[in-house]
Simulated assay, not measured.
Amino acid sequence: MDHDETGPVHLRRIDPSRNMRRFYMLAIQPTLFGGASVIRNWGRIGTNGRSMMETFDSDDDAASASARLERAKRRKGYRDSARPE
């Protein structure tokens, strides 16, 4: 793939005053037909959470979608996780 990201991105947002402990994971995987998929997994830390897969025709489209999602989550207060949740 032609994007900078080499592996999944694991983010988390913890705010004890709001009883908030959330995780968000983004990964890009190739499809069987030459495209790429952005896999998202999110939820409360300690649960399996929810998942969504979005498929794109090219690796570049998937990489830009993933970067856009990551920027949006970071603006909302998500930070790098020390380990995958």
Rank of each mutant, 00 (worst) to 15 (best):
M1T: 05
H3N: 14
H3W: 14
D4V: 13
D4Q: 14
E5V: 12
T6S: 15
G7S: 06
G7N: 03
G7K: 02
P8A: 13
P8G: 13
V9Y: 02
V9W: 03
H10W: 08
H10Y: 12
H10P: 01
H10S: 01
L11A: 07
L11P: 02
L11C: 02
L11S: 03
R12E: 14
R13V: 04
R13C: 01
R13K: 14
I14R: 15
I14P: 03
I14L: 05
P16N: 08
S17K: 10
S17T: 07
S17H: 11
R18V: 05
N19F: 13
M20L: 11
M20E: 13
R21Y: 09
R21A: 10
R21K: 08
R22E: 04
R22V: 01
F23K: 09
Y24G: 06
M25D: 07
M25S: 05
M25A: 11
M25P: 00
A27R: 07
I28F: 05
Q29N: 14
Q29L: 11
Q29T: 12
Q29W: 00
T31R: 06
T31A: 12
L32D: 12
G34D: 05
G34F: 11
G35Y: 02
G35W: 01
A36R: 04
A36L: 00
A36G: 08
S37T: 09
V38P: 12
V38S: 11
V38I: 06
I39R: 03
I39W: 06
R40D: 07
R40S: 15
N41S: 15
N41T: 15
N41R: 15
G43Y: 12
G43V: 07
G43F: 02
R44N: 05
I45W: 00
G46A: 08
T47R: 09
T47P: 09
T47D: 07
T47H: 10
N48R: 15
N48L: 09
G49E: 04
R50N: 14
S51W: 00
S51N: 12
S51E: 12
S51Y: 00
M52K: 15
M52V: 10
M52N: 15
M52G: 15
M53Y: 00
M53R: 14
M53A: 15
M53K: 13
E54C: 04
T55F: 01
T55K: 04
T55W: 02
T55P: 02
F56D: 11
F56V: 10
D57C: 07
D57R: 12
D57E: 13
S58L: 06
S58R: 03
S58D: 07
D59N: 12
D59T: 09
D59V: 13
D60G: 13
D61E: 13
D61V: 00
D61H: 03
A63G: 10
A63K: 02
S64I: 03
S64C: 05
S64R: 13
A65T: 01
A65V: 02
S66M: 15
A67Y: 05
R68A: 10
R68H: 10
L69K: 13
L69W: 07
L69P: 01
E70H: 00
R71L: 06
R71A: 15
R71V: 07
R71T: 06
A72L: 08
A72N: 13
K73N: 05
R74L: 04
R75L: 03
R75D: 08
Y78R: 04
R79L: 11
R79W: 09
R79F: 03
A82L: 07
E85N: 04
E85T: 01
E85R: 09
E85W: 13
